[in-house]
Design a protein around this nucleic acid. Structure first.
Length: 291
DNA sequence: TGCCCCCTGCAG
DNA sequence: CTGCAGGGGGCA
């Protein structure tokens, strides 16, 4: 579910609320959802008494840095949520508001792990159990099997048209959409933002890497940066599961041009948006604007 | 470099 | 009931 803008929103939000708090207790309701880095034998309770120092993000992964060089690497995958509820917050909720209803339902049947902190509770919910909370250590992060495969950040200076041209050349016979989704190249782009970026760049998702002109590569590079930045600006896309760290809805769903708009008129040319299957995923595009 | 799969729930 | 869902690991 969450792509870079959603994960970044959660990290920024919780990064203001959690640091300096102590982990009082750890509750693991689904053993499958709590992993340990290879070599670590500690039980979940080993982090009880430690403090949260800071939060950071690597690709679509969330890292909660703890004292004594421990950390939690959290991946939300498709349906994960990481939501903090301050003590007594429920009393202050505006009854009937969708965010209030959601917060009131915590812990829910999908809560897999939760941490009782000094001033509140941090819930990890995950309907499909694809995601995880992994106990690890600072010195083990770079060799983590997930982290070590990650490529570069889309909003960084290293991600430029030269870099994307190189990626497309290396994956000459792959769909450009598959290349955007591959986290070993550029990180953080998922199904929504890939479709949105390709629409913005006026490039068909099924175009092969070696068929893109330099102009198209340049456009697509800018479009990736543009839609990712827009997603962050609007606190992410809430379609079904995604919530911010405070349990609120994102707003980017109101600004999507093609994703989830099958059959609706293109915002530019009114041609109905088409949905196909590419790279194993539902893919939305305008057959007229995108060449 | 593509596919199947992990798992659960919802819409058609 | 089948198919599909913001991800990505493991396997040809």
């Amino acid at each position: 579910m969450p792509e870079l803008p959603e994960v970044e929103t959660v990290v920024r939000g919780l990064g203001k609320l959690l640091p300096r708090q102590t982990i009082k207790t750890v509750e693991v309701l689904s053993a499958k959802s709590f992993l340990k880095a290879t070599g670590l034998t500690e039980k979940p309770a080993a982090i009880e008494g430690l403090k949260i120092r800071s939060l950071s993000r690597r690709g679509k992964g969330i890292i909660i840095h703890l004292t004594r060089d421990y950390c939690l690497l959290i991946h939300l995958k498709m349906t994960g949520q990481l939501v903090y509820i301050e003590k007594d917050a429920k009393k202050r909720l505006n009854y009937g508001h969708p965010d209030a209803n959601f917060l009131e339902s915590m812990p829910s049947s999908h809560t897999r792990v939760f941490l009782r902190l000094t001033n509140g509770v941090l819930y990890f919910n995950d309907q499909r159990r694809f995601g995880y909370v992994k106990l690890t250590r600072e010195e083990l992060l770079d060799s983590d099997p997930f982290i070590k495969r990650l490529g570069i950040e889309p909003l960084s200076l290293e991600f430029n048209s030269k870099f994307l041209a190189g990626l497309a050349r290396r994956r000459a016979r792959s769909n450009i959409k598959a290349t955007l989704l591959d986290q070993s190249g550029v990180v953080g782009v998922g199904n929504i933002y890939a479709d949105e970026a390709l629409f913005d760049a006026k490039v068909q998702p099924t175009r092969l890497g070696d068929s893109l002109s330099p102009t198209e590569i340049t456009r697509l590079t800018k479009s990736v940066k543009k839609v990712i930045a827009l997603g962050i600006k609007y606190s992410g896309t809430s379609l079904t599961h995604y919530k911010t760290g405070e349990g609120a809805q994102g707003k980017m769903q109101n600004h999507l041009k093609v994703y989830g708009r099958t059959g609706l008129p293109c915002t530019v040319c009114k041609t109905p948006i088409k949905k196909i299957r590419t790279a194993g995923r539902g893919t939305h595009y305008c057959p007229s604007c995108q060449k």
